[in-house]
Design a protein around this nucleic acid. Structure first.
Length: 874
DNA sequence: TAGGGTTTT
């Protein structure tokens, strides 16, 4: 996001504020003040910075290329001037001068893999890094992929003794202020490193455990949903790798984050929703635990919640909590945003270790980027001998199209004499031909074509990670942006980047979500390019001209600006943030978006008219569910169908339960598609999708043998003969995603536990065994309708249908399933993946779980309803 | 007649 946009966002934030005492002028003044202290502090910290401390501006170079850099500088000019002025003024501002400590000298590495670890770029900077952490409350670490930041920095901090020192200091100051409780053994002794993805948290914890030569779960552990290895064996874990959602949950119970002395917010540049919220939450904890009250440091945004923050501060003082240090780790240079948010933060830049990747652009814009991608991949294949190719495409459709075209063209290469090189390759491995076809991957004339997207069954996904089969000369992977961050592919030498992606967007004015094809950002382009330089030098072929690259946004739109915030708002309210509109967001969301969220929460009864959290809202906030589903669950007791609703919300939180659910697909997977659709028929409920999901889960429970360990017990094995099947086999036979089902099961168990736990123990005290399953399920339908009363749609007969009724026949197939939503009055259609899609007699009224704009406005998760079931609720 | 990618005490 560029500066203008940022400022615009700030201004929106200001416009929201109602407090007449804090006019926007005053705010601006405060902001200036903050800026001043920021530049002042960063000036100070350069003393302890190494050579590259000054080179922050240059680090964009490998990413954006020469011309991109020029433009960037121009854009930044205004900001730079700002800084210069404030530098001049800085002398008259009194800021508590922190005594400069001497450079920390880190002891030699201990543990395993010492040679590898000392070769990492971050190793050279460990002394100054730890010194910066010791001297500053906030340190921004800008480090590219391959620098070792995520694995090494937490260990350095632990080894440096910074935690011990600040804990002791806090204990001492607590003693001098008459506080006799000494908690320096208890609080602030762990480091938390947050990750946007659970796989990353788990693998990092495992990696660092082995590097430090300790059993996972002792010194180093991970904490992700359903999997917590911290504090095993009674040891207090020192380095905790957690998903940011997990730390956020922890903050709901413990806003001071007492356990931690340092919190590292990793992958900050990704700007995930949870990381962004954590920024504000961590900042609040940091402020409450800071020893010196620097009024300049108090963000104006805290004013409204001052009372609560003051309470937190008292508590921190009473407990003798050490200061909380924050380390923001980011791969891109959007440091200004972070620095504006954390005034006075010190910055350090650590180079990554990547092989050089050559950037190639097209001369002209490509109208048909699919055709361009296809041709480019074929050209690389024709003119080079080795190196795998990764092609970024926006979606599954595009991937499948390109895959089948690629196959066709590679087959034709065999007969094309003009393409000498290709022919040679083809002849060498002719024997393999197209005989191999596993899942959606195939080998065509020695080329292993793999497709990769999230909705793909895990087995089929694995092909992209497997080494090339014998005799294959090359692997071509066609992927969505799943390969951008979520997974790592080895051996990629060529990246083909179409420059597009699909993003989920949320319109606060309509409350509708949509999936849009749009241009990627420069940061994403850099990330894609980086995939080519992991093991050797590579080439990145961008299917757009350089001038188009220059015009791309520098960073992607943060998720917080793109999604429905009702869940986040509920969480913030539960954390005691009175007015989330004045919460300190890294990038404040649109005010309409917050207002819309409040409207929903109010309709659900989670907040009252004065927007205060109700008892029900408090209960809803305890559930790791979307507020609508939390509401659905809470009122299921009334209908005596808690058990069924637990299953449904579990199933709804797992995406892609069904494989090959109806529809298109190319000739190769056509067979599987039909099989999948017919396999799903047995689960189909006449009443719609939610009862069908219930059927799947119940059938699985009745017919499959599942063991979390992967190995069924003796007792379970005995049942194998008597109609029971192993989990994996059952899923395969029924075209159900085993992974998704297990996830649904886990979510169900977790929520069931939470719901059944007594209220005194922070639970909901619900009777979770209440079931209405007598074959009819009427209370269950009533409950769904009442729970989803905001998502009701009424059928509108189409012109064709009207005609059919009056006896006319146009010959056209009558289009069925057109509805109008009761709230908003949108014209919607039933999504093709719904079990109610294409029904001859569609129900007059339905409730739905999701409304999505793609080629049309669709509703999904559709269930039959009746007027009398939802009527009274609105 | 169609699904970018994450994730929650």
């Amino acid at each position: 996001m560029d500066n203008d946009m940022y400022d615009a966002a700030i201004d929106i934030g200001i416009a929201v504020k109602e407090d007449p005492g804090s006019s926007s002028k005053e705010k601006k003044k405060k902001r200036r003040k903050r800026k001043r202290s920021a530049s002042e502090a960063s000036e100070g910290s350069t003393i302890s910075k190494g050579d590259d401390g000054q080179q922050l501006g240059d680090a964009a170079q490998p990413i954006s290329g020469a011309s991109g850099q020029k433009k960037k500088k121009k854009k930044k000019k205004r900001h730079t001037l700002d800084n210069d002025t404030s530098l001049e003024q800085s002398s008259d501002v009194q800021k508590p001068v922190e005594q400069k400590k001497h450079l920390i000298n880190m002891p030699p590495l201990t543990g395993n893999l010492i040679k590898e670890r000392s070769n990492l770029p971050v190793y050279q900077h460990r002394n100054e890094l730890c010194t910066l952490v010791a001297d500053n409350d906030v340190v921004l670490v800008v480090a590219e992929t391959g620098s070792g930041k995520s694995t090494q920095i937490p260990a350095y901090i632990l080894q440096s003794g910074i935690l011990k020192k600040s804990a002791k200091a806090a204990a001492a100051s607590a003693l001098t202020s008459g506080n006799t409780t000494s908690n320096h053994q208890k609080f602030g002794r762990s480091i938390c490193v947050t990750q946007p993805r659970r796989v990353a948290a788990i693998t990092l914890a495992t990696r660092v455990s082995s590097e430090l030569n300790c059993t996972p779960g002792t010194i180093v552990g991970h904490r992700v949903r359903f999997d917590d290895t911290t504090d095993l064996r009674g040891q207090s874990t020192k380095i905790i790798f957690a998903t940011d959602g997990m730390l956020l949950r922890e903050a709901m119970v413990d806003p001071l984050l007492k356990r931690y002395g340092v919190i590292c917010l990793d992958e900050a540049h990704e700007r995930s929703l949870q990381t962004d919220v954590l920024f504000g939450v961590v900042k609040r904890a940091m402020f409450a635990r800071s020893t010196a009250v620097d009024e300049d440091m108090i963000d104006a945004d805290f004013e409204k919640d001052r009372a609560i923050t003051d309470k937190m501060r008292e508590e921190a003082l009473r407990l003798g909590l050490p200061t909380l240090k924050v380390c923001v780790m980011s791969a891109t240079l959007d440091v200004e945003t972070f620095q504006r948010f954390f005034p006075g933060a010190a910055t350090i830049k650590i180079p990554g270790r990547q092989f050089h990747v050559q950037e190639v652009y097209t001369e002209d814009p490509q109208d048909d980027y699919l055709d361009a991608a296809l041709k480019t991949a074929l050209q690389i294949h024709k003119y080079t001998h080795d190196g795998d190719i990764l092609v970024f495409l926006p979606g599954q459709d595009e991937i499948e199209d390109v895959a089948s075209l690629l196959k066709k063209h590679l087959e034709e290469l065999e007969h094309d004499d003009s393409q000498e090189k290709s022919r040679d390759i083809v002849q060498d491995i002719k024997g393999i031909g197209v005989s191999f076809n596993s899942g959606n991957s195939m080998i065509v004339n020695g080329v292993f074509i793999c497709v990769l997207y999230a909705a793909l069954p895990p087995d089929a996904q694995m092909n992209a990670f497997r080494p090339r089969p014998d005799g294959c000369v090359r692997k071509i992977i066609l992927s969505t942006n799943i390969a951008e961050t979520s997974v790592t592919l080895n051996g990629i030498k060529y990246v083909v980047d179409c420059g597009k992606h699909k993003t989920r967007e949320y319109s606060s004015s309509t409350g509708m979500e949509s999936l849009k094809l749009s241009n990627i950002s420069k940061a994403q382009a850099a990330q894609r390019m980086g995939r080519a330089g992991r093991v050797s030098e590579g080439v990145c072929l961008r299917l757009y001209p350089e001038i188009a690259f220059d015009e791309l946004q520098s960073t992607s739109v943060p998720e917080i600006l793109r999604v429905n915030l009702s869940h986040v708002i509920l969480q913030l309210k539960a954390m005691g943030i009175h007015d989330p509109r004045s919460f300190s967001f890294l990038t404040p969301p649109d005010k309409d978006s917050i207002v819309k969220s409040f409207e929903l929460l109010q309709a659900l009864g989670a907040v009252d008219k004065s927007l205060d959290l109700t008892v029900k809202g408090r209960e809803m906030s305890k559930l790791p569910l979307d507020p609508v589903y939390a509401h659905l669950l809470l009122q299921s007791e009334k209908f005596e169908c808690v058990s069924e609703i637990l299953t449904v919300v579990g199933m709804l939180s797992a995406e892609n339960i069904f494989f090959n659910r109806a529809g298109r697909g190319d000739a190769d997977s056509g067979l599987a598609t039909a099989a999948g659709a017919s396999a799903h028929k047995r689960f189909a409920s006449n009443e719609g999708d939610l009862p069908s999901l219930l059927n799947v889960y119940n059938a699985w429970k009745a017919e499959a043998i599942y063991s979390p360990s992967g190995k069924p017990s003796k007792h379970q094995r005995k049942k194998l003969g008597s109609g029971k099947m192993l989990h994996g086999d059952w899923c395969k036979q029924n075209f159900i995603s085993g992974r998704a089902l297990v996830r649904a099961h886990d979510v169900r168990s977790q929520i069931s536990e939470l719901a059944s736990r007594p209220k005194e123990k922070n639970g909901l005290g619900m009777r979770v065994e209440l079931s209405c399953d007598d074959g009819e399920l009427i209370p269950f339908y009533k409950c769904i309708s009442a729970g989803l009363f905001l998502r009701v749609a009424i059928r509108v007969p189409s012109a064709n249908q009207k005609q059919a009724k009056t006896g006319g026949n146009s010959g056209a197939i009558p289009s069925r399933g057109h509805y109008k939503t009761r709230v908003g009055g949108n014209s919607v259609s039933i999504h093709p993946t719904s079990f109610l899609f294409g029904r001859i007699k569609p129900p007059k009224a339905v409730v739905y779980t999701e409304m999505l704009q793609t080629s049309k406005l669709y509703i999904r998760g559709v269930t039959q309803s009746k007027k009398e079931w939802f009527d009274e609720e609105l």
